[in-house]
Amino acid sequence: MTKLSPNLLIEAQNLRRTYHQGGSLFTALDSASFQVWAGDRIALIGRSGSGKSTLLNLMGGLDTPTDGTIAWVGLGPRETLRPAKVAFVFQMPSLLAPLTVIENVEMPLLLGDTPIEIARTAAMEALERLQLTALAQKLPEELSGGQIQRIAVARTLAYHPKLILADEPTGQLDHPTATLLLDTLFNTLKDTDTALVIATHDPLVADRMHKRWTIQHGILQTDSSHNGLQTVNATPQPKLSITRPMPKNSAPF
């Protein structure tokens, strides 16, 4: 039994996820056991359809396992994961079409009952960090694919989650744009204890991560030889210098 630690974010044992597909049972993930620690940089490598997205969805609480257990040890109950603690970056454009860039970025904060003025300030700071303030009043349909993904990253950074789950965020982008996006992401997270899990089949992306997990036909193999985990546990990363916007305790609805 793993000793509980405040730096352990997720612990999963024998996770299994099956789907009914055309009358037969399809196993997307089988007997996956893993741990995610604060400050982790994990590359989840696998071909399309190997179960990467399923694993990310289970980690983020978007989906529930058919069998096995998952505990968000350092994050709290599943219902409280989003929007405050876990953020997603999807492969497909995930901005809300009728809202401007700034409104999209502040949305998770508003959903966390953050007062609107504080949410707007935090969103602008996130855009500034990614040098995207010029796009603040644009609508998503006026942006390029790369800009949309960078805005999606800005949206996750605006509220400083403890875990970012990115599902092939560069899958739709050309190489220079993908590089720019990853640079932005890594630079922003450099001095934080935010864990990052990126699902990818791009070796160049995987090379920039501390850990490399592979998944094939739903079978997960974690890279236990990497010592980045111990480093993180031994010496906790300093907290982010920017003050996290505090959610209101009770917003009237």
Partner: peptide, 18 residues
């Protein structure tokens, strides 16, 4: 603002653009 709280702005913005 009263029934929707801080989401009032984005809800109306969304309706306004559509």
């Amino acid at each position: 603002r009263v029934p929707l709280g801080s989401l009032a702005g984005v809800v109306i913005a969304s309706l306004s653009r559509q």
